[in-house]
Design a protein around this nucleic acid. Structure first.
Lengths: 234, 234
DNA sequence: CAAGAACTTTGATCCACCGCAAACTTGACC
DNA sequence: GGTCAAGTTTGCGGTGGATCAAAGTTCTTG
């Protein structure tokens, strides 16, 4: 296995404030893995043997209901930790993580999390912050699902993806991994049919351009206006 | 101010494993407050100067959208911490907390959280666990809102409240604080009208008994069956 | 390059739930 | 104990979006 260079992780938020020697020590304990597209990094309900850091690619975090429906809880971008069940006092993963494209991840044994948090306070603070941000995110998601119409929810979802993974092209801002109508539906609690109708309507208005597993936001501001636009209840 | 007895908090999950002397030290730094019904313990967006422990009463955690809609994120029961923004690396409260009945709470200065977490590792672990459980809860909420019909969501909400705060009476299990149709609607992303219709329908079937700001679940198992019943999408 | 799989579009229909409106009930307060 | 506010019920109509169905369209693979 090739040696891991500390520059891979030195600039990441959760590793801020660590000395080069500490980073090297942390890296020595990590395994690096390649995950092929559509493979799982870890599985819902599975024993939380490891926690992970996504180095390259995009991962979707999915919860499946007993009756087989899927909900995409969030997408993970390069540099973000995932599967940090141990930082939450859990022994099992609450969701599955599936590679949206070929990925490279680092993996540490789960019990190391506590050790690292004790040894490097800023690492502990970093994960706390990540967890806090995600809790916040999920609360916002609940509010969104509880109060907004489908059109606004889909608009918000696209804007979030654009912000998180957008890549500038000459047509607008492209969501930088393959994403289907079905995926967007599972993020927003609707159906692929409704998503398709919305996208074609928006395309006619010049807000977006989309194709097979591909969405480009042409006019983010106008899409934002639509996302924030007047609600029904209120 | 009256002295606080350590027996008040000795048995709480987040204070497990602390020596009596430690508990006393922690209590010395706490202020105890009475919060009248409908008063706020802390406010959304407000500076997170303190974190709290609910000793007695019930508190609802509410998020308000820019356009004034409210969502009840969760209810806090006696013994639970709240407003633990500092444990999440945040400096501001992400939601408001309002007393559902007259309450007694303990309050500590926010910056003390880190100090306590360092001094008492089991306290740190306890809050991690609490945070983990809440993150989990919120994810489950998103899944619920994204996949279930209104009837199932309301049924689930009632069952959660029954489990959390249910008090056995001769008619069934009573939710132990005043809760209106509007409150239930704000927990489940629907309207008070729909909640009212559901409750009367359930009452006719003998599943619940309800009155003004009062709900008693008569047959939890049958309500549960309804909550878990077949979905539409699938 | 042919054939199939995966993804998307589009139409038609239906119904769960919302929004509005008005009456009713219960508790609080002077 | 009468009045008023707050909470609840109920009817009615409208509609956002799901469901069902069927045809495109674009990739993949031999």
């Amino acid at each position: 296995m090739s040696r891991l260079d500390r520059s891979l992780i030195a600039d990441l938020p959760i590793f801020q404030g660590l000395a080069p020697a500490d980073l090297d020590g942390i890296l020595q304990k990590a395994r690096s893995l390649r995950i092929a597209k559509d493979q799982a990094v870890f599985e819902q309900e599975g024993d939380a043997h490891s926690f992970f850091l996504l180095l390259d690619g995009h991962v979707r975090v999915v919860k499946t209901t007993p009756d087989g429906q899927q909900v995409i809880v969030r997408y993970i971008s390069p540099g973000e930790p995932m599967g940090i069940a141990h930082a939450l006092g859990r022994t099992t993963y609450p969701a599955s993580a599936v590679a949206a494209v070929d990925c490279v991840v680092l993996a540490w044994p789960g019990n190391l999390w506590l050790e690292m948090a004790v040894a490097f306070p800023s690492f502990g603070a970093g994960t706390r912050k990540t967890v806090g941000a995600r809790l916040q995110e999920m609360q916002a998601g609940v509010v969104e699902l509880a109060t907004e119409q489908v059109e606004q929810r889909v608009a918000h979802a696209l804007l979030r993806l654009v912000k998180q993974t957008g890549r500038k092209t000459d047509e607008g801002i492209l969501i930088d991994f393959p994403i289907s109508r079905q995926d967007i539906a599972e993020m927003t609690g609707t159906t692929l049919h409704t998503v398709s109708r919305l996208l074609t309507a928006w395309e006619e208005k010049g807000l977006v351009k989309s194709g097979r597993q591909k969405v480009t936001v042409v006019e983010p501001h106008r899409l934002f206006a639509l996302a924030e636009g007047q609600t029904n209840k209120g």
